[in-house]
């Protein structure tokens, strides 16, 4: 095993350009069952924890920008974020325990590419933009366009997630619902982030497809105020948007039905078209 430990972003970019390296931030995904993970222990890593200036929250007129090393805790305990982007605090507070929240980073959650990532749906529902840095300069990708397939993403080997930018907008509805096997720190069976700004809905779901993804069919139903008289009226759109599976944590049938019920009950008082 090799670990490179840059002190600056420039050094990090140079190291990444020179050879294939796996970036490490908080280490909370990488080190699980580490002593037995002999394959992972053969690889080479780029440790970002010592890179200065990567852990920040910057409030601009147009956007809030989170640094590549900004942790869940940084966000959860920040009253300004809680006020303006409450879903970040909701979701961040449900990523594992406070021990995980103190170490895990938003960028790491995006880059790990897990379909069950708890931090990603809310970022996507806020139309987050991922800022990918490299020696060639920054490239910006809408998070909603970032994932290509299971653990596949628009992140080239020489690039790092340098920052995450969240446009500042007025939201008249925002909610994050996580369904796990228990109340606290469970891996998600179904997660959904919902926002509405200027009459446009975002519906983002995790754990029900190979990637976290926006749900265009559901968003269209909501944008167009199509009538919904019960949870079952949402199933066609759910099946169009998502592809849940049976696994050791739940079943496809449960996931579909539960998502439909959560959407129905939580939007009933919000959408006039829901009876």
């Amino acid at each position: 095993m090799r670990v490179l430990m840059p002190d600056t972003l420039e050094e990090a970019y140079g190291m990444l350009a020179a050879e294939p390296l796996t970036p490490v931030a908080g280490g909370t995904d990488l080190l699980a069952h580490w002593p037995g993970n002999h394959d992972a222990r053969k690889r080479a890593y780029l440790d970002l924890s010592g890179v200065s200036g990567l852990r920040f929250m910057h409030w601009g007129d147009e956007a809030l920008t989170l640094g590549g090393l900004t942790t869940y805790s940084d966000v959860i305990w920040d009253s300004r974020v809680v006020e303006e982007f409450p879903l970040l605090a909701d979701a961040g507070g449900q990523v594992g325990s406070i021990q995980i929240q103190a170490r895990g980073t938003w960028a790491g959650n995006i880059a790990n590419g897990s379909p069950a990532a708890d931090g990603v749906p809310v970022l996507m529902a806020y139309d987050a933009v991922v800022v990918l840095g490299s020696e060639e300069g920054d490239q910006e990708v809408l998070l909603a366009d970032f994932y290509l397939g299971y653990k596949k993403m628009r992140l080239r080997a020489h690039q790092l997630i340098r920052a995450i930018r969240l446009p500042r907008r007025e939201y008249d509805f925002q909610r994050f619902v996580k369904v796990g096997a228990r109340n606290a720190q469970a891996i998600t069976k179904i997660g959904v982030a919902l926002t509405r700004s200027e009459e446009r809905w975002r519906v983002v779901v995790n754990s029900m497809a190979p990637t976290v993804r926006r749900c265009p069919a559901l968003e269209a139903m909501l944008d167009e105020d199509r009538p919904v008289s019960g949870p079952e009226d949402l199933l066609t759109a759910i099946r169009e948007d998502l592809a849940p599976i049976d696994d050791i944590r739940s079943t496809a049938a449960y996931r579909e039905k539960t998502l439909a019920r959560v959407l129905y009950f939580d939007l009933k008082g919000v959408c006039p078209s829901f009876a």
């Binding site: 670990v3 908080g26 909370t28 080190l31 699980a32 440790d47 805790s73 406070i98 103190a102 170490r103």
Partner: peptide
């Protein structure tokens, strides 16, 4: 548990609770 689930290995790292099973030693420099 070795996977940051049970919290038995909790230490305070810069004052915050962290699972020491998930912290690479080199990161505490």
């Amino acid at each position: 548990c070795g996977e940051g689930e049970c919290g038995s290995c909790t230490v305070l790292l810069d004052g915050l609770p962290a699972n020491s099973c998930l912290v690479p030693t080199y990161q505490v420099r």
